[in-house]
Every structure is written in structure tokens, then in C-alpha cells.
């Protein structure tokens, strides 16, 4: 689904002394089937931005177009359910949203709300639980008897069960162990490709952003600061540092390497594999 954000502004607690402008003049086009990484310092407005994408927050000014649905400041009340079915959000710390007696019922909550039949929802639950790497036996357990990481997976399964067209992920792997992190990210990426999703990933990890994203958008103090392809963004080290961020560690390593060795390796290695490859080539060249 194509997403188009125009001059979006959001103020929390409008009209009170606690009023706070969290977003200002954000313009962002996300083409269909794009994997967009949204990065930015803490408090820069990432979560605020993504909550506009399925109408959980209303714009104070500007508009958002999600496929055929238009959400704009001062717009009429509309039924947001169809949009919410298509745009699934995995919130920051989603394990806090679990409430049912069993994991199965909790996963079925979303699909049932969106009108799926009981049996179909059950089937979906047993599908997605495998997807997130948990055994079928978990389905009959209480979600509150699980470990934090398992609860996280169940919560993610609850959103995947809605089979959304747009997947919005707010730091889905924060606080998970390293292998869990990779597993979950790989799962999202696989789904993104297989189901031709449009994915918005909020992350603090430059490594994830560079590894999975087609495009990167950088937020800074409530404004869209940079937007482009990963190699474009990661060439702007000064600007990134200005926004309280930095380039991925692989690029930092290459910068140091070039400085110490006097070589001039290309800085476009964003993953460990790419880095190893480019170093290998450089060393081979020196050897011969």
C-alpha cells in the first residue's frame, strides 16, 4: 500500500499548558512494497508519526493518505476499522497488551475483531505461533506464564494474525536476546518479501536499518531530517551526528581503517558480510 504523508503536524495535549509539538511539517512518500527504516534519537517523534498511519492519532495539521483512505486534520469521522485491519502495528513493548486466558485466544483477538470466523482464527493462530518460533503447546498456556521474550513473540503473532498489508514495527526487538533479535527481524523481512508488504520499521539499530531497509528516514526534533537510500544516508555522517545518531559500526570501522592504513576503501559496506568481503579484497590486492 502506498503511503503519502503531507505537511503532517502533531501537538500533544493541544490547548493545555502541557501542549507539546511532537511533529512538524513532515512530508514523506513511501512507495508500495517498500521497506522503510525510521530512525532518530529518543523523543524525536518516531512513535508519534507511526501512530498516525492507522488513525490512532489525529493530525493537528496536514494529511496522511494510506492507499485509498485519507486522514486529515479536521476531517470527518470515519470508520477506521478497515484501515486498521490493513495496517498492523507492533507497538513498543507489545507484551503489555496481552490479556486473554490463553495465548490462542489472545492471538485470535485481532482476527475475530476484524470479522474472521472462529475456526479460521484458530487455524491462523496455530500458523502464526510457528512463524514466531514458538511450539504449538504454548497456545493453551496463559500468556502471563511466559517469559518476557516469549510474551513478545505472542504479541507479535497477534498482529501478524491480522494478515496486514502494511506492517508497522515500533522497535520490535528492543530488549530481546541477540539471537532472538535476528530471528524476529528475519521473520519480518521474510514476510515483507513473501507477502509483498509495505513495512515501516522504527529502530535504533543502524545495523538493522542498513541490512533490511530499501529506504531510510531520519527524524530529528519532530521533523523529517533526512530521507534516502541507505548508502545516501550513511554518507552523511556529519548530519547523522547532528541528529544524535551515527553511521553503522562497519562504516565507522572502515573510516578508521582508511585513516590508519592510508587506503581508500569504499564506505558502502553496511553489514559484517560486506565488510569482510571488502577487506578480503583489499588484503588480497595488497598481497599480490
Amino acid at each position: 500500500m502506498e503511503i503519502s504523508i503531507k505537511q503532517l503536524e502533531h501537538r500533544y495535549m493541544q490547548g493545555t499548558p502541557f501542549e507539546r509539538r511532537a511533529l512538524h511539517d513532515v512530508n514523506l512518500q513511501i512507495p508500495d512494497e517498500t521497506f522503510l527504516a525510521l530512525i532518530g534519537h529518543t523523543g524525536s517523534g518516531k512513535s508519534t508519526l507511526i501512530q498516525h498511519l492507522n488513525g490512532l492519532l489525529k493530525p493537528s495539521a496536514g494529511s496522511i493518505k494510506m492507499g485509498n483512505t485519507i486522514l486529515e486534520a479536521g476531517g470527518k469521522k470515519q470508520d477506521l476499522k478497515p484501515l486498521r485491519k490493513k495496517a498492523g502495528i507492533v507497538f513498543q513493548y507489545p507484551e503489555h497488551q496481552l490479556f486473554e486466558e490463553t495465548v490462542e485466544k489472545d492471538i485470535m483477538f485481532g482476527p475475530r475483531n476484524f470479522g474472521m470466523s472462529e475456526e479460521e482464527a484458530k487455524r491462523t493462530a496455530s500458523n502464526v505461533i510457528e512463524m514466531v518460533g514458538l511450539p504449538q503447546t504454548v497456545l493453551s498456556k496463559s500468556p502471563f506464564d511466559l517469559s518476557g521474550g516469549q510474551m513478545r513473540r505472542v504479541a507479535i503473532a497477534g498482529v501478524l494474525a491480522m494478515n496486514p498489508e502494511v506492517l508497522i514495527l515500533d522497535e520490535p526487538t528492543a530488549g530481546l536476546d541477540p539471537s532472538g533479535r535476528v530471528e524476529i527481524m528475519e521473520l519480518f523481512y521474510e514476510l515483507h518479501q513473501k507477502n509483498k508488504l509495505t513495512t515501516v520499521l522504527v529502530t535504533h539499530s543502524m545495523e538493522d536499518a542498513s541490512k533490511y531497509a530499501d529506504e531510510i528516514a531520519v527524524m530529528h526534533k519532530g521533523e523529517l531530517y533526512l530521507h534516502g537510500k541507505p548508502n545516501e544516508i550513511f554518507n552523511e555522517r556529519k548530519a547523522l551526528q547532528e541528529a544524535g545518531l551515527d553511521v553503522p559500526e562497519t562504516v565507522q570501522f572502515l573510516l578508521k581503517w582508511n585513516e590508519k592504513s592510508g587506503q581508500d576503501l569504499s564506505l558502502s559496506a553496511f553489514t559484517i558480510e560486506e565488510l569482510a568481503k571488502s577487506l578480503g579484497q583489499a588484503l588480497k590486492k595488497r598481497g599480490s
Binding site: 486498521r84 502495528i89 507497538f91 503489555h96 497488551q97 483477538f109 475483531n113 497477534g158 491480522m162
Partner: peptide, 13 residues
């Protein structure tokens, strides 16, 4: 508010 939003995102009304 946070939990309300999370459940609304899952279709709660």
C-alpha cells in the same frame, strides 16, 4: 492510553 491504542490497533472498539 497506550493499551487502548494497542487494542484499537487490533480492532477493539
Amino acid at each position: 492510553e497506550k493499551i487502548m491504542k494497542a487494542q484499537m490497533a487490533r480492532g477493539a472498539d
